[in-house]
């Protein structure tokens, strides 16, 4: 008895084509049905939870519109804060969670960026090496933010001690550019129920 092999390519091609048809329908359903939802959540994750990789995300500032067109990754360093009077020169990070504040000064993500013409709120621990010495600052002292998209000069016009729950001390507004630094107050043992706040307005036009 001989065995003869017969090629039935048509059936094979039909099955493969049918599989690809199913996959195409699947892709269409995913794309039109779930794409928006999936992209929304991946964008949230990318905005909040991705730290700057070695190939840094390019930070871009639109000079004409006075607006950031590409913001730093949350948790990434994007500049330094310098205050000559108290020999302060610290890294500035985007975000202000506990981990970030242990590395340097944190920029509250709900506030504006320097140059955008609104409130810029920065926080730091009141420990040596952080914001301990801002308590020595007074009116007319200068603050410089040296960022990877430009340099911004500020001059202090007020310092205040406020309650930790006083949100009116940290207004988020876009009428004028205001730099607000704060740290826990007073120094010493225990939980701090107050905040020492420094207010500064932008001076001059620096490059951005």
């Amino acid at each position: 008895m001989h065995k003869k092999y017969k090629f039935k390519g048509k059936a094979f091609v039909t099955y493969v084509a049918l599989s690809f048809l199913f996959v195409c329908v699947f892709i269409v359903i995913i794309y039109f049905g779930l794409n928006h939802t999936i992209r929304k959540y991946t964008n949230i994750i990318n905005t909040v939870a991705i730290k700057e990789s070695k190939n840094d995300r390019k930070v871009k500032f639109d000079n004409a519109q006075k607006k950031m067109t590409s913001i730093p990754s949350y948790g990434s360093k994007y500049g330094t804060i310098k205050i000559d009077k108290i020999n302060l020169d610290l890294p500035l990070y985007y975000g202000d969670n506990e981990e970030i504040l242990s590395y340097g000064i944190g920029h509250y993500a709900g506030s504006y960026f320097p140059g955008e013409g609104g409130s810029v709120i920065l926080a730091g621990h009141n420990d040596p090496g952080y914001f301990e010495k801002i308590l020595e600052l007074g009116n007319n002292d200068k603050i410089v933010l040296d960022l990877n998209y430009g340099k911004f000069d500020y001059q202090i016009y007020e310092t205040r001690i406020v309650s930790e729950n006083d949100l009116s001390a940290f207004p988020i507004q876009d009428n004028e550019e205001r730099l607000i630094l704060y740290t826990c107050y007073p120094l010493g043992v225990g939980h701090k129920t107050e905040r020492f706040v420094v207010y500064a307005h932008r001076v001059g036009e620096t490059d951005a």
């Binding site: 008895m1 001989h2 065995k3 017969k6 039935k8 094979f12 099955y15």
Partner: peptide, 15 residues
Amino acid sequence: LNLNNSLFKIKRIRK
């Protein structure tokens, strides 16, 4: 599964 089913068909030829 596809190869088994569709590509080849063994035909026995009685001699």
